[in-house]
Amino acid sequence: MSEHLLRVDWPACKAHGVCAELLPEVISLDEWGYPIVHEPVKGDVLLLAKTAVKACPTLALRLTEPPPRPA
């Protein structure tokens, strides 16, 4: 399964911390409560990541498309 990247829309993020609650495998919080994304998501974590993206109160988290595969 391909990797997806989690990207934060920084101006939109208001440090609610929901993403780190739902996705501790990949996201931790810095000292001010803003997310630190540690690695790309793949496999089972991808479903959790989609949940986290939907749950963000300010819609500041996005999964970006994996780069296109060479034909």
Binding site: W10, P11, C13, K14, G33, Y34
Partner: peptide, 9 residues
């Protein structure tokens, strides 16, 4: 002051 890590960091 729009992005948290910059505004605080």
């Amino acid at each position: 002051g729009r992005c948290g890590p910059c505004r605080n960091g």
